[in-house]
């Protein structure tokens, strides 16, 4: 969700990299509301090393403005730093989807996104999310509650639901 909202904000194309054993896949009919599926390219790799290599290449080229990689193992400092340098060269954003607690120290920011049940709104626009910024090299940490608006194709920051 966070990835697709990010893709909405960035104008260029996006690339989604995942490993071949993964059975779940992104559904273009589902994210068509967020970003145009024709702008997205999907790469399937053999292992995490390949994923990182492909991500580095894609970030450095500048042909896509967002690179999303699905990782399953922790990323070392060297790899993280290399990705960062590549992203700076190519003026692109890299986003790694990682399992809980496997973040690298090299990253610029780390977010935790969880969907939140929202009893107030109707069923149609129940897209409430809790975005936590849990690591930020150049600022403070914070928590937002956001909601996606389908009609205007934007997300809004909303107050947290009352308990």
């Amino acid at each position: 969700m966070f990835a697709f909202m990010l893709a909405t904000r960035l104008s260029g194309g996006a690339m989604w990299i995942r490993e071949n054993w993964e059975t779940s896949q992104i559904n273009p009919a589902g994210f068509a509301d967020f970003t145009n599926p024709s702008r997205l390219i999907r790469c399937i790799t053999q292992n995490q090393t390949e994923t990182l290599a492909v991500a580095e290449e894609a970030l450095r080229s500048g042909a896509v403005s967002l690179v999303i990689m699905q990782l399953s193992q922790p990323v070392g400092l060297t790899e993280g730093r290399r990705l960062q340098l590549a992203a700076r060269d190519g003026d692109a954003t890299g986003l790694a989807i990682i399992p809980e607690g496997m973040g690298s120290n090299a990253v610029e920011t780390r977010w935790r996104c969880t969907p939140v049940f929202d009893p107030q709104t109707g069923a149609e626009d129940s897209t409430l999310q809790r975005w936590e910024l849990i690591k930020n090299k150049s600022g403070t940490l914070d928590v937002w509650h956001v909601r996606w608006d389908k009609a205007s194709r934007r997300f809004f920051v909303v107050p947290p639901p009352r308990k």
Binding site: I41, V54, A58
Partner: peptide, 18 residues
């Protein structure tokens, strides 16, 4: 060009479009 370069690494048949 990016697709070509990545294709030499992971194979062109592994890069998809919807």
């Amino acid at each position: 060009d990016l697709i070509s370069r990545l294709g030499t690494r992971i194979g062109l048949e592994n890069i998809h479009r919807f």
